[in-house]
Design a protein around this nucleic acid. Sequence first.
RNA 1: CGGGGUGUAGCGUAGCUUGGCUAGCGCGCCUGAUUUGGGAUCAGGAGGUCGCAGGUUCAAAUCCUGUCACCCCGACCA
Length: 478
Amino acid sequence: MAKEKKLVTAITDMEQDFPQWYTDVVKKADLIDYSSVKGCMIIRPYGYAIWELLQRQLDDIFKATGHENVYMPMFIPESLLQKEKDHVEGFAPEVAWVTYGGDTELQERLCVRPTSETLFCDHYANIIQSYRDLPKLYNQWCSVVRWEKTTRPFLRTTEFLWQEGHTAHATAEESEAETIKMLNVYADFCSDVLAIPVIKGEKTEKERFAGAKSTYTIESLMHDGKALQSGTSHNFGDGFAKAFGIQYTDKDNKLQYVHQTSWGVTTRLIGAIIMVHGDNSGLVLPPAIAPTQLVVIPIAMHKEGVIEKAEELTKRLSKIARVKSDLSDKAPGWKFSEYEMKGVPIRLEVGPKDIENNQVVLARRDTGEKIIVSMEELETKVEELLKDIQSNLLEKASQNRNSKTYSATNLADFEKTINETPGFVKAMWCGDKACEDAIKEKTGATSRCIPFEQEEIADACVCCGKKAKHMLYWGRAY
RNA sequence: CGGGGUGUAGCGUAGCUUGGCUAGCGCGCCUGAUUUGGGAUCAGGAGGUCGCAGGUUCAAAUCCUGUCACCCCGACCA
């Protein structure tokens, strides 16, 4: 693999100060700006373009799997939020309240949705009567508000964009199948589109979503060895249905409760892209999610025919990729750096020498490699390169994650590993919450998930030594 | 919510301890010329309620009080 060469000095080295590196990338790549409201960020055009591509592709998959989009109100009356006990207890500390309408104090205060389970449930109770009404497969794209104490761009903001799927099914088997199906949709999307490998698994009871029967998660690993929960899928069983009275009459004319699911991913995924693929020169975008896949940079623009050639190539390549050209009067070196910070997968340089030789120079962002390509095979080469970059990024991210995945069979090893070599730690667990708490207390690591792919790395629980039930992934998390 | 820090031009900052004349510098921006294969050079130019409010003083970016905001580190969360 090619040695990574530091090309831009405007960004702090990640080895030196990872949080600062992250902030620098987010700012230098023009993804966001801070706003005048604490914890809220302005998503700038380039950042939003990434979100739009992500949204469009995911939405297509949702539609293809039978889901429909709806839009729920952003306000939830307090009484509605309180219908499911665990749920309200889980979210109450972080909701924002509306208490006035104009200058009139409201009879009942309204919360700004932190999530919309209660709204969907209330609605489902009204529209579901018969088994013929099932399943209901709804999704909404919206923003939610959670009054977090500490915020970071994309990873945790007061308001964030997401999608939340909410479905209602006739049976427990169906809701479980839906939960797993959507988890797989997320996992495939992460690896195929975002080039981020994930661990699929179930959350322990301690980490479970407020009100859920079971919570499944995809966990990814960032460059600094910290874990990021990248998507979740919950099976509610009939808990919410009972709290909200969502019943239907089955084929045998018996009244039944529905079984529900919910699942979501957020703008946090953009944070994951940054921290999984980024390097010391800035952002590195997988082609599938890059708003600009190739940027055309003319060299010596004042020379005869250069601008015309750049425009011609831009037009030609626009047929096969998302292409833009930069004909501004900045120096070429400045442009190189600019598009590297922004993570554009391929840079095309074209100057008088190239025109003379009937060729162009392609530079790939992931490896820094420069390739001379003849005009004739340009399209073929660009398509090939985009594919190659996409798969190379997934390969690199997988290697990185695997090299930072360890296992521990006793607590001393566990602690040493998590402190000295940050990453995932695999360890056996007896299933007792006391051990989970103890490990968190002692090491600062949280249980990430009980992976579907289990391994027998020992017989005994890493904490108490009793007989182990599962292998768990642990890590320090964002 | 606890601890720490910072607010001076679009961005980054000097000045504040010890009050004093026109608030200095770098980047960026505008104009022109020369340049152009890794953040070009020269010349000229524009841009400031010194976070906000009050106070002390002949005089406040500087001292005092209050207030607002943001950042970083912890405990809680996608």
